[in-house]
Design a protein around this nucleic acid. Sequence first.
DNA 1: TATTACTTGACAATAAGTGTCAAATATAGT
DNA 2: ACTATATTTGACACTTATTGTCAAGTAATA
Lengths: 102, 102
Amino acid sequence: METIGQILRNKRQALGLLLRQVSAYVDIDQAILSKIERNERKPTKEMLVKLAEILKLDKDELLVQFISDKIAYEIVDEDCASKALKVAEKKIKYLKSHPIQN
Amino acid sequence: METIGQILRNKRQALGLLLRQVSAYVDIDQAILSKIERNERKPTKEMLVKLAEILKLDKDELLVQFISDKIAYEIVDEDCASKALKVAEKKIKYLKSHPIQN
DNA sequence: TATTACTTGACAATAAGTGTCAAATATAGT
DNA sequence: ACTATATTTGACACTTATTGTCAAGTAATA
């Protein structure tokens, strides 16, 4: 199972790009990118979009990885994690079909 | 579809309890409880446990509602929300079966 | 050993979440 | 309408998380 950091690092190296080059494109300090690639920090969505661009990765697929990483990390320690995910899916479907709230 | 706030409020009123009484038991300001019941703030886990006690709600079920609410709220605006949840579930299963990380 | 790539940690800046309080509003009884 | 009680709202301080910046560190290679 590949983490988002691994995906980014693998692709960057496959393209022969340096941290310096990618971080310049994304407009972040290369220290941050280094940490992102080692899953020590999470990218923002803006970073993700730019990263997808320069690394020629599918933006939507990367976003799925990003969000799922965040959720998984957030609730992996809960006994009811799996059940909560199922309920969350129902809630989201409900919310999307009833857009007016508050 | 009931939010966690609605669940708490409905049950509190069904039991004929006042915000003041419940918040005293949970040891929080009643303003906070008021906001929790209107989904303006999220309870902490500790609050949830105490709330389950005094409101005679199932602790685990409430926790599922709590976590699923948090996730749903977090990603409802994403087009790929549903897909991300599925991937998250796989990641969690993977993480649980490979407990040693880092 | 000099150079380049990457990593690490300390620190400041910013944002997000929390608790407290008092005033405002609502609700119901008289 | 008046009172009392319940709830809501918003301002604020306080704490905690997140984020960016930087310089010094390590690692690998020529």
